[in-house]
């Protein structure tokens, strides 16, 4: 059950679009910076496959310039 956090850099002028688009994806939480063009994205998925698919979906967004992983936790289901 991976929990991953990322720094997401939007394309110029696309911060709001990126917030909206990522917010609509399930298993994602978005925390936008108040004063910079940068978002924190935290994903919480059931397994590695789901995690990979979700990451691909985020990376496919046109409003995204760069997605950089910061930390990852993989907790077993029964933990």
């Amino acid at each position: 059950m991976p929990i991953i956090s990322y720094l997401a850099h939007p394309q110029d002028g696309k911060k709001e679009s990126l917030i909206n688009e990522i917010s609509q994806l399930s298993s994602c939480e978005v925390i936008p910076a108040e004063n910079k063009d940068l978002l924190i994205v935290v994903t919480d998925t059931n397994n590695k496959e789901e995690d990979e698919q979700l990451k691909e979906k985020i990376e496919a967004l046109d409003s995204l310039k760069l997605l950089a992983m910061v930390s990852g936790f993989d907790t077993p289901k029964n933990n």
Binding site: I3, I4, S5, Y6, L7, E29, I31, A33, K36, L38, I40, V41, V42, D44, V70, S71, G72, F73, T75
Partner: peptide, 14 residues
């Protein structure tokens, strides 16, 4: 808690 830690790590990096 883990999600909060993950977000916090990203904030610190930022």
């Amino acid at each position: 808690f883990i999600k909060k830690m993950a977000a916090a790590a990203a904030m610190t990096a930022a």
